[in-house]
Design a protein around this nucleic acid. Structure first.
Length: 654
RNA sequence: GCUGAUGUAGCUCAGGGGUAGAGCACUUCAUUGGUAAUGAAGAGGUCGUGAGUUCAAUUCUCAUCAUCAGCUCCA
């Protein structure tokens, strides 16, 4: 019986009985066969060597396909395990998946500790094994066989994994002497792996549970070509230079002090200026969108948080209550603004005509984050939320939600965040114990968020278990320089706090009704937003933050007039800087003290005056040669384009 | 909080049981027609903090604090 294989271009090939992805590739070209890592068979990724015995749509996967990379890295994890087993017999293995960039394997070395110094040895062993071009062989085994194998091998983690698997769906993969429990798929043989780097060693709890044993996690990345590894490592180095903690120090945006306390940022003058501009920008936008500013104190009585439910949920892991001379009195540093805003809502009876009521506050809050969680400005213990709470009627929720989506997207677009993930964060599918409120209200809120996002045409991903304890969220995540994701903007629908605070409004029917609350923060927090913004704008901040951008230097007094002409012309292009008068003491002062900090130095003399150009030197890059003023202006604007965009947006009317 | 690593000048880092080192940055002076340079001089450190071992600790041991990577967490 012949089988028909349909390729992505629509062409159909016929084969007798069965065929593997690799054989199909060979039939197309040898070059393709050398690069084929796996095959997508009717949407499922298969080993390139696994026979296909039925009609199917097949796509051959190579390094350029995301699934190809994932297969490649997953196989690399097996290679790592093989190397570890060979170097450290008795090692027990957890899981070893591919990740966004590379792979890891969780292993248990028993009593010995593994140090980073040993990584080169493991890398060498991996390369040695890779060169042997060991084939990945798939075999289907029964549950009993699988248990027998790992019982004899003495690998408790694998046994635990097998427990959760169905008999008849268990497969082993073997390369060389190493056999692993694995669903697959894998690349044809280890020879495809030409370049590798073990990047990191860290601890990780078995199955991600804090109560389980901590295993050693080895991270690595592999490539089919040496050159790609080099490029990747260079990219990583470059990214590290954009780390906001490094730039924040260099640009004097913020600092930390052991004496003040960890996780408590000190904003330096330049950082405070940047923060202030962002605040003004958003305040204008919010004013237009019908928000009303409010201000509330930094502390609130403990009872406030008992009412909101926050005390029960977070009380024991928070900053301890503040005592007063009155023994029965306790205050908490506010960890969020919502309860205060609820009390503002309650200051007078509300009519349905008052709603939606949008109360906004740049509220500084304090949360006792676990010490290991603190991270530059992205995770701190004291931070300012660009918070607001919208109190509205149930039928207004979706509309208000959509308006907030517009605002968040406006902010992101204005500040140049083109790449973000919009994530709908819902309740855990199983464990509902960590949430307050009725299923009915939760389902309603979850549905409204999904509908609002869909109606806005916003592409979203859904994550279960990521909701706040009082309601589902729509979060906007942006990556930092090295690819870690951070939640910036957030919009949350909440039916629960209005209940707890017994918020009411009088409807058109003259009856009392309960409003719905929308919590929202487009930046998330000023701290985290500045951090991510810094990493995105990278080296451009100093230009933006200090107006001194170029220095114009005449070679001698004779060319001073021309230098002055150049200087004036540049200023018309909004390029500011210094004109160095080299024949006066003050000129030297400027050059010595200030010019060194300026990124561009423009030198004018006889030649330049003659052909109307300037000689340009750029700090760190050296001589850029001679160019016309117009060319320089274009180059300059290009270089600091992002900065100008941010700047003009923050300065223009919203 | 957990596992592992790190902490020496403003910054980046070297060193190592017995006067504390470099580069960049900083201060002063000189020099500068292709130039953010050059020359000279100078200032700057209880070697994160505390205890222990020792004749002697920045170095070894322990504790503690902070930072970094990852895990867990994130109202």
């Amino acid at each position: 019986m012949e089988i028909k294989i349909t390729l992505p271009d629509g062409s159909v090939r016929e084969y007798p009985q069965s065929v593997t992805g690799m054989q199909i590739a060979l039939g197309i070209s040898e070059g393709l066969a050398r690069n084929v890592l796996a095959a997508k068979v009717n949407g499922q990724v298969w080993d390139a060597n696994r026979p296909i015995d039925h009609d199917a749509e097949v796509k051959l996967l190579t390094w350029t396909d995301p699934e190809g990379k994932q297969t490649f890295w997953h196989s690399s994890a097996h290679l790592l395990a093989e190397a570890l087993e060979s170097l450290y017999p008795g090692t027990k293995f957890g899981i070893g998946p591919a990740i966004e960039n590379g792979f890891y394997y969780d292993v248990d070395f028993g009593d010995r500790t593994f140090s980073t110094d040993e990584l080169p040895k493991v890398e060498a062993k991996m390369l040695e094994l890779a060169r042997q071009k060991e084939t990945f062989t798939r075999s289907e085994v029964s549950k009993a066989e699988a248990i027998a194998y790992f019982t004899e091998k003495g690998d408790p983690y694998k046994l635990e994994l097998i427990e959760g698997l169905q008999d008849g769906q268990i497969t082993f993969y073997q390369q060389g002497n190493f056999i692993d429990l694995c669903r697959g798929p894998h690349i044809p043989d280890t020879g495809f792996i030409k370049a590798l780097k073990l990047t990191n060693v860290a601890g990780a709890y078995w199955r991600g549970n804090e109560k389980n044993k901590m295993l050693t996690r080895l991270y690595g990345i592999t490539f089919p070509k040496e050159k790609e590894l080099k490029e990747y490592l260079t990219l990583l180095e470059e990214a590290k230079k954009r780390d906001h903690r490094k730039l924040g120090q260099e640009l004097e945006l913020f600092a930390f002090s052991e004496k003040v306390g960890k996780g408590l940022p000190l904003w330096l003058p330049k950082g405070a200026l940047l923060r202030d501009r962002l605040e003004q920008f958003l305040k204008k936008a919010q004013m237009k969108a019908g928000y009303q500013p409010v201000v509330t104190p930094h502390i609130g009585s403990k009872q406030l948080y008992v009412t909101s439910g926050h005390y029960e949920k977070y009380g024991k892991d928070s900053f301890k209550p503040i005592q007063t001379p009155d023994e029965d009195e306790e205050f908490l540093l506010k960890p969020m603004n919502c309860p205060h805003h609820c009390e503002i809502y309650k200051t007078r009876p509300r009519s349905y005509r008052d709603l939606p009521l949008r109360l906004a506050e740049f509220g500084t809050v304090y949360r006792y984050e676990q010490s290991g969680e603190l991270h530059g400005l992205t995770r701190v213990r004291g931070f300012t939320q660009d918070d607001a709470h919208i109190f509205c009627r149930p039928e207004q929720v979706k509309d208000e939600f959509k308006k907030v989506i517009d605002l968040v997207l406006y902010v992101f677009r204005s500040l140049g965040f083109e790449h973000y993930t919009a994530q709908i964060s819902l309740r855990d599918r199983v464990d509902r114990s960590k949430y307050i409120g009725s299923d009915e209200l939760w389902e309603r809120a979850e549905r409204e968020i999904m509908e609002a996002a869909a109606e806005k045409g916003l592409p979203t991903v859904i994550e279960y278990g990521e909701a706040a304890f009082y309601g589902p969220k729509l979060d906007f995540l942006v990556k930092d320089a090295i690819g870690r994701k951070w939640q910036l903007g957030t919009i949350q629908v909440d039916y629960n706090l209005p209940d707890r605070f017994e918020l009411e409004y009088v409807g058109a029917d003259n009856q009392k009704h309960r409003p719905v609350m929308i919590h929202r923060a487009p930046f998330g927090s000023l701290e985290r937003f500045v951090a991510v913004l810094t990493e995105h704008c990278a080296g451009n901040f100093p230009l933006w933050l200090s107006p001194e951008q170029v220095a114009v230097l005449p070679i001698s007094e004779k060319y001073h007039d021309y230098a002055q002409t150049v200087f004036a012309a540049l200023q018309e292009d909004d390029i500011r800087g210094y004109l160095d008068d080299r024949d006066e003491k003050i000129g030297r002062k400027i050059r010595d003290a200030e010019v060194k900090k300026v990124p561009y130095m423009l030198i004018v003399g006889e030649k330049e005056q003659a052909d109307g150009t300037i000689s340009v030197r750029k700090k760190g890059e050296g001589d850029l040669g001679s160019m016309s003023l117009a060319d320089f202006a274009a180059h300059f604007q290009q270089q600091i384009k992002a900065v100008f965009e941010v700047k003009s947006l923050l300065e223009t009317e919203v």
